[in-house]
């Protein structure tokens, strides 16, 4: 039996199928939590925002319509919640400064995926580097990696040009690569 899509599960939940919501939640809960955690870095605040988001999903079930992918809809809510949180904590200036003209850090690193110890160390370093990214680049990187959204979908979601999103993503990757080299 083929698995039901996110949209089908959400519609089932709108028809009071609690089991459908459970399936949907288990499918996305960790990614959403990591999305907030990578942005904020604080597990408690991330949990709070994570809870707020899912409660909003629950309360929006009656008004849910399939106009876009469920992922896009839910991460739009997550993005808005995050922006609210930044604004409430007077962090918007700092967070939205997309400093794309930073000088790239020179250096290179060799990563052996079979080396688990190195992988763990580099993964931890990568998370630290993600936290150092400007908000807009980090947002695009996380939406692409955690929400599995493609660049055009992210562009639609953020109402930006696709090329701009592509450029930001490329900058994010470059910065992460250079960050890893510096840390190493």
């Amino acid at each position: 039996m083929s698995e039901r899509s996110d949209e089908q599960l959400m519609l089932a939940f709108a028809n009071n199928d609690a089991q459908a919501f459970e399936t949907l939640y288990k499918r996305h809960k960790d990614a959403v939590y990591r999305y907030f955690l990578r942005h904020i870095g604080n597990p408690e605040t991330s949990s709070e925002l994570h809870q707020d988001l899912w409660l909003k999903v629950i309360n929006s079930k009656q008004s849910y319509q399939i106009k876009a992918k469920f992922n896009t809809w839910m991460y739009t809510l997550a993005h808005n919640r995050l922006v609210d949180w930044y604004r409430r904590n007077n962090l918007e200036q700092q967070s939205f400064q997309a400093n794309e003209d930073d000088n790239p850090i020179e250096g290179s690193t060799d990563w052996n995926p079979d080396d688990e110890l190195q992988t763990m160390r580099l993964s931890k370093q990568l998370k630290t580097c993600i936290g150092k990214l400007p908000f807009e680049q980090r947002e695009i990187f996380l939406l692409h990696q955690e929400a599995s959204l493609k660049i055009p979908h992210i562009a639609d979601m953020l109402q930006e040009a696709v090329e701009k999103i592509k450029s930001r993503y490329r900058y994010a990757i470059d910065k992460l690569r250079k960050c890893l080299e510096v840390i190493r």
């Binding site: 459970e22 809960k29 939590y33 990591r34 949990s47 899912w54 629950i58 992988t119 993964s123 990568l126």
Partner: peptide
């Protein structure tokens, strides 16, 4: 990207999971 995917180990707290499912 591969390195990031390997480091996706964080999971949402169980208490919050239970709370959200109960709300649903």
């Amino acid at each position: 990207e591969k390195l990031y995917q390997k480091g996706q180990t964080e999971k949402s707290p169980v208490a919050i999971d239970n709370f959200i499912l109960a709300q649903a």
